[in-house]
């Protein structure tokens, strides 16, 4: 079988952005593989089902449902696809994933084993918090939340319920004072409930300026 489908509409993995730590190779590979699955002519099994299978596995990895066995599986499937698919399109997608698996091995491993994503792109790797010292209580963020995960009110510091939050990121871009940010493993201290703006007691600056500090003990 010969197939003339070209890779023109695929978004390649931006290795420079990955190297700069601002893009996630797993997320980009996932996007790429879904593009390939959507562009398949559908006649050849590795192109049709292989792209979809790999894209499904990659999606699982980006939401924290991957396992270390998945990397070997993706490697095996993409290896076969790179060899067998009859078009340039799926071939490029498979080879891009293979290259990334090799070049960004550590980042892939962090994703599957520890649900970590260096650039905090993948949903399983971060939580979303409103900085209680910056938030002005303007309420711009609340209506854009699709799942109503932000509590707050006029002149109250807003609080994100991360059990509800889907990590869509919509609120981050609308905050006029950039008070909303993603957090990796280390979570900032924020109030559990909305409190009046300005009432949050900022943590004392630790001795020596490092982050390990002892909280003052009442005398």
């Amino acid at each position: 079988m010969r197939c003339e489908t070209t890779a023109a509409n695929l978004t390649p993995i931006d290795v420079e952005a990955v190297a700069a730590g601002v893009a996630c190779p797993v997320a980009m590979a996932t996007t790429l593989m879904w593009q390939a699955a959507g562009a398949t002519c559908g006649r050849e099994v590795y192109c049709r089902e292989g792209t979809r299978q790999v894209a499904t596995i990659l999606t699982d990895i980006t939401v924290g449902k991957g396992s270390s066995a998945d990397l070997a599986l993706v490697d095996e499937l993409c290896g076969l696809m790179a060899d067998l698919v009859p078009c340039a399109m799926a071939g490029l997608a498979a080879r891009s994933v293979l290259d990334s698996l090799r070049d960004h091995a550590e980042e892939w491993d962090r994703h599957v084993r520890r649900s970590r994503c260096t650039s905090l792109t993948c949903a399983m790797s971060f939580t979303v918090h409103v900085d209680p010292t910056t938030c002005t209580g303007c309420e711009e963020c609340r209506p854009v939340c699709p799942v109503d995960a932000i509590a707050g009110g006029p002149d109250l510091v807003h609080v994100v319920d991360n059990d509800v939050c889907t990590r869509c990121g919509a609120c981050l871009s609308v905050c006029p004072v950039s008070a909303i940010a993603k957090a990796g493993p280390i979570k900032p201290k924020v109030p559990d409930e909305p409190i009046p703006v300005g009432s949050f007691a900022a943590a004392p600056v630790p001795a020596g300026g490092g982050m390990r500090r002892r909280r003052p003990r009442p005398s």
Binding site: E49, G50, L77
Partner: peptide, 9 residues
Amino acid sequence: VALELMLAP
């Protein structure tokens, strides 16, 4: 693997 891929859906 081709058969596995066909069986997946």
